[in-house]
Amino acid sequence: MSTFEPQIIGYCCANCASSAAQIAEKMGLSLPENVKVIQLPCTGRLDSLHLLKALEAGADGVYVAGCQPDSCQFKHGVEKAQKKVKYVQTLLPALGVEPDRVALFHMMAGKGQQFVDAASAMVEKIRALGPSPLKD
């Protein structure tokens, strides 16, 4: 039985998450290979649809990386994203999907390690959950 390698989509904002990525790059850190990033201008751009579409497309897990609630360059973008994530988490059980497959992380612009740790934590969590039930 081969070990399961989850496929993760990460929606990252162009501000704090991007800056954190910059620091991670400077520190020589790298995201786990299973994680692929789609950059949004602000996590406020996130629609519940995007989380669901990603799962539908075959992602085993989806996470959102945005600013700290008090540092969002667009003031309350990350709060809105949090709402969407929570909403999707309530929908997922009805579809037979574990709500933990979607998550939101607040980034600090200077913490490169945190940027990578969030991704790794997600990978670990999803690995434990197994492949997405939506996949045939």
Partner: peptide, 18 residues
């Protein structure tokens, strides 16, 4: 239109290897 919902859906699919 710079990053529409259709764009995102297609990107997600493509990134996952389809």
């Amino acid at each position: 239109r710079r990053l529409s919902d259709d764009h995102i859906a297609v990107m997600a699919l493509s990134l996952l290897g389809s």
